[in-house]
Design a protein around this nucleic acid. Structure first.
Length: 279
DNA sequence: TGGGATATTCAGTTTACTTCA
DNA sequence: CATGAAGTAAACTGAATATCC
């Protein structure tokens, strides 16, 4: 038995799921010392092997408690099997041993403590291996299947939130591109107007060309003669290299799109979630 | 190497329950 | 207080995929 427990403690925390590894906000906070949820789960396994009814069960719904009290070994054995795609419709498959004879699917509402523990564990690992699942279930007085379902739904919620963040990012990026497009069209119109200017204003075509300047960095062309170009208005296109950040108009596909460090060009409203690789 | 069995995850859906007007 | 709509989350289904034998 002790060997099994030691093996469990070795196994726990070693199966980081690959499903959401791109979501650094969930895993980045993890440090080597943050396996306490699993350690606690393990210790609870040891405790509950000696105690039949853990206190946390009082907070679970009647059907859950009934299912548990109706015979843990039976339930655990069944839960180790998958309910599977061929499972009985309506959730009766989980309750068929007398927990809810009426046949209707009763829904458990997790207590705050249970939810907190699950959240804590989810921060550490977004997926569970079977031993982790069992340990958590024992600690919380839930069935392994319930823990498994909770993690599935939690992953789905996380993904949904991340999708919302991505959508917001794309929306803002689209707005920026539209602005940039508008500006370029205006610039093109200016150039065409300049080219079509009457010779009276321009003594020669070479003289006209001489009045055109180009920013060496952004390669934007403008007439130096008039002060309309932003280079004159802003003194310089890229005035001071204070922060090594290119101006926005030079960032058609900004580093933010592939930068996972959060250096987004629109991070003024930095989201709590991570900007994903979008391109 | 191909195929069946099994396990796991995910996307989508259903449904019990809660909240609020 | 009763009620129905809307929202939330637990639970389910089926498909895809990986691994083992």
């Amino acid at each position: 038995m002790m060997q099994q427990q030691q093996q469990q403690s070795l196994d726990l925390g070693l199966s980081l799921g690959g499903g959401l590894t791109s979501q650094g906000s969930l895993s980045s906070s993890t440090t080597s010392g943050q396996l306490s949820p699993w350690a606690a789960a393990l210790s609870s396994v040891r405790q509950q092997q000696q105690a039949d009814l853990p206190a946390t069960r009082a907070s679970t719904s009647p059907d859950s408690a009934a299912a548990l009290s109706s015979g843990d070994s039976h339930n655990n054995k069944r839960d180790l099997e998958r309910t599977g795609s061929g499972g009985v419709r309506g959730g009766v498959s989980d309750e068929e041993d007398g927990a809810d004879g009426a046949g209707g699917r009763k829904k458990l509402r997790l207590s705050k403590d249970q939810a907190a523990v699950l959240e804590e564990c989810f921060k550490t690992h977004s997926t569970l291996n079977p031993k982790q699942k069992l340990a958590l279930a024992n600690r919380l007085g839930l069935r392994p299947r319930q823990v498994e379902v909770w993690f599935q739904n939690r992953r789905a919620r996380t993904k949904l939130k991340q999708t919302e963040v991505d959508c917001e990012y794309l929306k803002r990026w689209c707005e920026r591109l539209a602005d940039e497009n508008k500006r370029l069209e205006k610039e093109l119109a200016d150039l065409r107007a300049l080219k079509a200017a009457p010779p009276a204003a321009m003594p020669s075509s070479s003289a006209a060309a001489a009045t055109l300047t180009m920013c060496p960095s952004c390669r934007r062309v403008a007439a130096a003669a008039n002060n309309n170009h932003h280079h004159q208005q802003q003194q310089q296109c890229h005035p001071v290299k204070s922060n090594n950040v290119l101006p926005s108009h030079c960032q058609f596909f900004p580093a933010a799109a592939v930068d996972r460090t959060g250096q987004s060009t629109w991070n003024a409203t930095a989201s709590p979630l991570v900007t994903r690789e979008l391109f």
